[in-house]
Design a protein around this nucleic acid. Structure first.
Lengths: 352, 352
DNA sequence: CTGAAAGCGCTTACAG
DNA sequence: CTGAAAGCGCTTACAG
């Protein structure tokens, strides 16, 4: 395709506008209906192979692309889904998007991304802002209150990494796909207990969403009855700086913890910085764990022991669930496994 | 809005389908045209304030939302732009999206994101995959060969952080918005020269795009005639690991450089890890600089001296340029300033 | 195997 | 100040 100059691929459409199925029909000497059948791949048994070929040739020559707005209007569906995420700063959500968009494309669906400006919380109006006619909505890791706003359009809603029981009003999404967050946190606790830690602190993220509530509860449950002491802190802003400040406060205590379990890799990176500033070594003086396995987990030194979440998988699975709902069927509630990745930021506690 | 159960906000639309402007007109006792005028905000001087109010009341009661597909079909434009980026793994592009989407929303435009699966390179078919009728395209930091594919739809194209002279075929985008990449690299060179570095290595990214070619050239130009020796390496894969391997090779030389200028913060993070593995201290034994000021730049220890790119600004400016083009006017070619941020990863060379 | 016709929901001249 | 009508481009019964 060495097109130069002419924006339209060299083939002149009548009067400078984009070619329509009427133009293609005219050029191929058939009716508009035949063009539609051939372009839509529904011609077998309805149109002869010869005719189909000539339609395709005419379409190719004119550079015909079906007008999606017209198709949507006629069909009453747009084959477009909205993906709502709290932020794009974490590569977790970028990977969720990748997975969801891949499955969408496989089914001729488009995907519009809406990073909720509030971060967590009710999105003001994703629908107006997305400016697209939508067939359904996928939302990842949003606060439950966002649910109401999200189902504003009366659209099928699939929630990822969210409370499977819906919001406080008892509204439930059409489907949920979850991660075994509790299992990941249990694996972290077990890992630290086996290393010999007895004083463990939880560095919580100041984000009011299901995924973080589960992290806190699962850690507490896993340590109950083990003899290990669990310190909880004021939840920290979900950032490197937030982790740094919270960890500093913890490590300055008279009897500091020997291990810091962080809700997220960004917090863990901050915790490592705090340790270093206080002259402590990781993991020699204090062990640190993260969660999510973001890119930052292997960018820092030592690399973070963390819980790897299958981000692309949950995005893909969420889109499949939405397709199932749109198909009038009920998807299975899915829970994807996660995996503890032990790296350099954890080790046995210093024996005093 | 405490809606329970009924997906449609409690107000029953006729026969279970979404309400249309006809339904609103019927309920308000006016014509469809009046509804359109009022909803579109074009009623002043055409419809009485009383009538307008009653239309709005009816629309509110029914939960009416204009059908965007129908509007697009009628108007011949969709008020939707496509943003093509090489990857979403770098938070630079996430921020470009944020800036562009904000300006788009301010002008009632939607934004569809297309992370080119190839990373850099000609996107296979963003238009088919994006599955939306589009009014224009914004592409950031793509290889020039991608240009041809991108203008496939004959759509207005705005290129960000790209060669202002277009591709090898002489095709030019409708507008470009650039960053003063060369200025950023010059500032980096000056910073290192002032610290006293004489043996400087360039750790290049193995990405064939304008932005990285400019980085290499600007660094070479800035060091010419200064007496400093510039070592170039095999371009490295654009990742922490890529930077780590490339830096290891450089630092193992008989006469290693005292400063590593990296094309990107990920490479710089990898370079710092390489130094540490070889028992070298940053910046005591070797200085490292990054580029972009990604989140990782302040997550690592020491924090990276790097060049901060105004990512949201370039996204916003790109969307404004597209709006100008769609308005039939010619936007000014814009070059946004960048800023060197000196942090802990650079210092004077060790005096032997 | 193929074509003529209806209609999706909107906006905008145009007529009153 | 308001309404009736046309038409954007597509797909799908329906008739031949």
């Amino acid at each position: 395709m060495t097109t130069r100059g002419t924006p339209n691929g060299g083939a002149a459409a009548p009067r400078g506008t984009a070619p329509t199925s009427r133009d293609v029909a005219h050029r191929a000497g058939v009716s508009q209906a035949t063009v539609s059948l051939v372009m839509g791949g529904k011609w077998r048994g309805r149109v002869s192979a010869r005719t189909a070929d000539s339609v395709r040739a005419a379409a190719g020559a004119l550079g015909y692309r079906p007008n999606l707005a017209a198709r949507s209007l006629r069909l009453g569906s747009t084959r477009t889904a909205l993906l709502v995420v709290p932020a794009l700063t974490s590569d977790f959500f970028a990977r969720v998007h990748t997975g969801a968009a891949r499955v969408a494309a496989d089914h001729d669906f488009g995907m519009v991304l809406y990073p909720s400006p509030e971060g967590i919380g009710p999105a003001p109006d994703p629908f107006a802002s997305a400016q697209a006619s939508l067939d359904g909505v996928i939302a990842s890791s949003m606060a439950p209150e966002a649910l109401a706003a999200l189902r504003g359009g009366g659209l099928p809603l699939v929630m990822l990494d969210s409370d499977p029981d819906g919001d406080s009003d008892g509204d439930r999404p059409a489907a949920t796909v979850n991660l075994d967050i509790a299992g990941g946190m249990r694996a972290t606790a077990t890992h630290l207990l086996r290393l010999g830690h007895h004083r463990i602190a939880h560095l919580a993220a100041a984000v009011d969403s299901w995924t973080f509530r589960v992290r806190a509860r699962a850690l507490a449950d896993a340590l109950t009855g083990t003899g290990a002491a669990l310190t909880a802190t004021e939840p920290a802003e979900l950032s490197v700086t937030g982790g740094l400040h919270a960890a500093e406060r913890l490590l300055r205590r008279d009897v500091p913890p020997t291990a810091l379990v962080c809700d997220d890799d960004l917090l863990a990176a901050g915790a490592c910085k705090a340790a270093r500033r206080l002259g402590l070594r990781v993991p020699g003086d204090v062990s640190v764990t993260g969660f999510d396995d973001l890119a930052v987990a292997t960018a820092v030194e030592p690399e973070l022991t963390t819980v790897r979440l299958p981000a692309e998988d949950i995005g893909a699975s969420g889109m499949r669930a939405l397709l199932t709902v749109l198909d009038g069927r009920v998807p299975d509630a899915d829970v994807l496994p996660v995996e503890l990745v032990a790296r350099g930021s954890t080790g046995p506690p210093r024996t005093p």
